[in-house]
Amino acid sequence: MTLQELEAVAVTARVGLTEEEKETFPEQISQIIAHIRTLDGVDTHDTAPTFYPIKQAGFLREDEVEPSLPKEQALANGPDVVDGYFRVPRIIEEE
């Protein structure tokens, strides 16, 4: 993985990188990927993927009204809370 590829992935993942990480990650991740490519040698032609190891029958719960988390508690950990809302930086520019 090149530094350019790394930086593109980092933007997709919304992860900021330090200068040190920009230096060490490409080599480290390349090593890990090289190890992972050993999977190329496994014949999986007729094999189905396993997403969850133990299959459970899906279920629908009864649609019953139950008490939910009070608003104050739900907002208590918010880094920036105003008038009962989480506030974030501006998303849409003004005309």
Partner: peptide, 21 residues
């Protein structure tokens, strides 16, 4: 988002980046 998540440790970042890739 990007600046906030810069605070993650290196192993968490490596795995997020690899997973995204």
């Amino acid at each position: 988002f990007i600046k906030t998540r810069e605070a993650l440790g290196q192993e968490a970042k490596r795995r997020i980046l690899m997973g995204t890739y």
